[in-house]
Write a protein that binds this DNA or RNA. Structure first.
Lengths: 339, 339
DNA sequence: TTGTATGCGTTATCAC
DNA sequence: GTGATAACGCATACAA
């Protein structure tokens, strides 16, 4: 492989001059620059970042550690966000999948150290609480947060499930609906708890409402027992069925749609349905398309990387978790009760 | 940062001896090994891979270059497959997203060279043909193949869309159906062409069949105009509607399901529906679950990495594209015409 | 404006 | 079995 010395020899200059040209340092005569660049082209010289790292101690590389336990495949957009930031900021990305396994995480930390990574993004594919064993390297949590108070030293960025669900519920109430069904997500998910709590808070003190709460899925994350279809079927065959069904997420909304359609009811004329996530393959492909709240996956990754950069540079002022809004996406699966 | 010299000094041995212990080379006394390992623990020494690379010229790192233009989010499983192989084989992975943009690809190749990557996986998120400008590094194509004959030098691994669609069609015929509708995918997709051709070949010469072919989506990949719902509605309101609808993929099957359900028809009693991809969020969440063919995403990534390893080692005998089967997944959205 | 000497953390060579 | 020393490709300090 051709090195800086080869270039220097052929160009008839010293190593240092080549180095200056490559790194665009000042104080080189334009003619010399030209000549050196010619030789670089001609020999196909490409600088060796590893050699540079030994001297500078800055790898300009971030590591991503992820569990890849996914509830919706769109969470892959987090990675996309990270990759986009990294590309725009001349860094590179080392990715390791640990399946959420502590032993594999241990190995991952070690690998990152061996590569002299500048910082680590600890990414989970669904919003959850984690226990962080070690942070030998500057670390930012993406889509997850530490439970214990001692972990407050690790900055994190998460979606604002509470705000999203609160806005969604308020929207439904503004539509004038009074008989409301709520299908809960797997309580194991942190997002499920936040969304449910927001629903309760947003409906608090409204005694004019009739609220029917069901549990849609239970069991270990990713392999849960799905009861949504049965629950919705039960709901709509009651004497006085709900006017609107709020589903814990879009995947559940898909189930609800089918249960309703098979019964010959129309959406939204007979019953309104809302989801959560804005899982596009579902939300935009349903007839009618789904009113939901969007999880800001791409932004989580992008801003998470940004956050890590400022952490690495020591420019981070506050350490408290950053909440990214989940905007209400209003589509045609909901209708006003007043019309 | 603590280096090999620090360990050597504290342990009272030479650099080389520490190196021997770290790399598990022979010819070191057990006692010496113990002592050195103690000091390594004590000082928290972690070898610097960059420094090692300078000497050995082997980075033990693969690069992944991907366009991330995705038709189904499950294609992320390709990355999962790659990550799994890489983890099991003590390599690390550098990922760059190019959005399929040639200029960004250029930069990506350069970055890989700067890092002295051992080999590159060129991954596309849907099965397509690509033009490869340069392969300065050992490269394997995953989920894509080169169009021109000169590109035959680059090994590739792709799903066998043809086989999958052929088997699926044969399965439908064995069920005894004679009035068949086929909803075509965006013809831009290579998979769409292969699947359609397989359907034609599998039904060739069967004049007892009534075949109705529709185009479900057209336009640029990822932003296409979706006409499936309208086409299926049209199909089933005809005088003699099809007994089975073969959809280009699962996402289209979702549309077909809704069009059929809204009309009050039952699946599969009144009409059978099949998809392609085994896009789980859809295929297992439909009622009834969908008969389809599975795209082997994980295997593409996993075996692609394997392929790259043998290419790098110079052990690759044949260069012709590897086809991975798309197995038939038989679920309840289809029924025999004889019952 | 340019060059020389030295050091980074590791492995390779060869001598002891 | 073990160690001294050179070498890898580059950057830094300093000299010219």
């Amino acid at each position: 492989m051709v090195s800086i010395k080869d270039v220097a020899r052929v160009a008839g200059v010293s190593n240092k001059t080549v180095s200056r040209v490559v790194n665009k340092e000042p104080n080189v005569r334009p003619q010399t620059i030209d000549r050196v660049e010619q030789v670089i082209q001609q020999l196909g010289y490409v600088p060796n970042l590893s050699a540079r790292l030994i001297r500078t101690k800055r790898s300009s590389t971030f590591g991503v550690m992820t569990d890849l336990v996914t509830t919706t495949p769109y969470s892959g957009d987090i990675m996309r966000g990270v990759l986009d930031w990294v590309k725009e900021n001349d860094r590179t990305l080392l990715t390791i999948n640990t399946d959420g396994n502590p032993e594999q995480e241990q190995l991952a930390w070690r690998t990152f150290q061996e590569h002299r990574i500048d910082g680590v993004l600890y990414v989970t594919m669904y919003h959850k609480e984690v226990e962080l064993r070690q942070t030998v390297l500057p670390t930012v949590l993406v889509n997850c947060q530490v439970a214990s108070t001692k972990g407050l030293l690790t900055p994190s960025i998460v979606p604002d499930d509470y705000q999203g669900a609160f806005d969604l519920t308020r929207f439904v109430l503004e539509q004038g609906h009074q008989r409301i069904a709520y299908i809960r997500l797997n309580p194991e998910l942190l997002g499920a708890q936040l969304r449910y709590q927001a629903f309760l808070d947003a409906t608090l003190g409204r005694d004019d409402l009739t609220i029917d709460i069901r549990i849609g899925m239970v069991g270990p994350v990713g392999r849960e027992d799905n009861r949504v279809f049965a629950e919705v079927t039960d709901l709509i065959t009651q004497k006085s069925p709900p006017e609107v069904i709020i589903c814990g997420n879009d995947e559940m909304a898909l189930q609800a749609f089918q249960a309703v359609m098979i019964r010959g009811l129309r959406i939204p004329e007979d019953i309104s349905i809302v989801g959560f996530d804005d899982f596009q393959t579902i939300s935009t492909r349903l007839h009618p398309p789904l009113t939901t709240a969007a999880l800001p996956y791409h932004a989580l990754g992008y801003q998470g990387a940004m956050l890590l950069e400022s952490l690495v540079k020591g420019e981070l002022s506050s350490i408290k978790p950053i909440l990214l809004p989940c905007p209400l996406i209003r589509r045609e699966s909901t209708i006003s009760a007043f019309t």
